[in-house]
Design a protein around this nucleic acid. Structure first.
Lengths: 221, 221
DNA sequence: TGGTCGTTGTCAGCATTTTGTAATCTGGCG
DNA sequence: CGCCAGATTACAAAATGCTGACAACGACCA
């Protein structure tokens, strides 16, 4: 899962980045407010860690603008000035949790997990498209009612495609969502992954749009 | 199951903590209102024991804010000033039950069990899934009617998995729930624990979802 | 005090599954 | 034809989970 780290102190940023990577996330750093705002507004992240004390553009303003644009990813704010009022202000601006600096990395990870879980974990509904359905609670995919055994990565692929069914998803986008920008265009990992899923869900489940990407469901016929 | 104790009197807090631990819960203490509010707001607890007479932030306010944020864990309030009006106020603010100080530890435990059970929605205190059943009152697990001897930690594992049967529980989540503090992926303590329980309850009782976690019961059909 | 027992975490080795890479195929199209 | 995006296959590397052995620790009891 991609996490956007908005932090101007490069040492803290790299520490955070390392810890998140070790915890299995895919961290990306934005070191100034403008960059942060743009990326949070246009890209998809599983969560954002936002330092309030930033040059160029205040963290709180960024937060408010995101929320105004109905960007609803979970957000954990950091600040050196651990005052009660600022904390409340942050929460009111739409943050999900707050952590005063300095902080323990373990605590940060725990809180991050908590807000992600709270956001996504429980209320997610069942997805059903065509003969495939997906139960996020059990992380179980079934085809015509028959359970299909998927590996973690395969599951994430199907989940993402189903969440975005009817839209064309480029290989680039898939790769980013699944792994971060770990592998470039010279690898065919995505193609292999898609092939594996097709073998399990049937070749028609995922449609190829040559030169553009993949699409789930919506058989054009 | 994690229980948040919000209590500024350290002696009471530690007594409570000990009693809850002995009863098989995982107690955590917050000694001031601010801390309490945040943890209750951001972390998951099975229940909260909330003292109304707190410095910095009034217990009732904390309670109202939690409820306003749709935090719906069961809450048992304590107060030294056992007045009728305050009790009503507490219930109206969203508490589940009320206990005047001083109190008997046994009564507290009974009421705590009651509100947890009421919240969990199962009318029978007994949990039964497949050939395994669990009696929380006696902390006794049986398999096909035969009592099984479990260590405290093993019991807590089974309890938590049964309360959440049909949902996938990650190793992370298990570790947090069972220990209160988190230990990293460099330890395989959870795996060892699961193996030990399986030896006692049968290998099929706990299903492994590779890469995701564990799930109780709910054979893949 | 010392011994025994049960509990729980750690470690190392093993088996299995998952995933990336490379090599080779396929089918449409200019 | 020859090219190209994508499909398929096979293989190797990495991740993940299981197991048995062992050690640390505390409770309990002579």
């Amino acid at each position: 899962m991609r996490i956007l780290i908005v932090e101007d102190d490069s040492r803290i940023a790299s520490d955070l980045s390392a810890a998140l990577a070790a915890a299995g996330y895919v961290p990306e750093v934005a070191s100034d407010g403008e960059d942060a705002w743009f990326r949070g507004d246009t890209e998809d992240f599983g969560a954002v860690i936002l330092d309030l004390g930033m040059p160029l553009m205040d963290g709180l303003s960024i937060l408010r603008q995101w929320r105004a644009n109905s960007r609803d990813m979970p957000i954990l704010i950091l600040t050196a000035r651990g005052t009660w009022t600022e904390r409340v202000e942050g929460i009111e601006a739409g943050a999900d949790d707050y952590l005063p600096k300095p902080f323990e990395m373990d605590e940060l990870l725990a809180r991050l997990r908590a807000i992600i879980r709270r956001r996504g974990g429980y209320s997610t509904p069942r997805l059903a498209i065509g003969e495939i359905s997906l139960d996020p609670r059990r992380m179980q995919v079934t085809r015509r009612g028959v359970p299909v055994q998927l590996s973690p990565l395969e599951y994430r692929l199907v989940h993402y495609l189903m969440l975005n069914s009817g839209r064309i998803i480029s290989q680039q986008e898939l790769a980013e969502q699944l792994q971060g920008d770990l592998f470039e265009r010279e690898s065919n990992a995505v193609e292999v992954l898609v092939a594996r899923v097709r073998r399990k869900l049937g070749t028609t489940a995922i449609e190829t749009r040559r030169g553009y990407g993949y699409m789930f469901g919506q058989e054009t016929v």
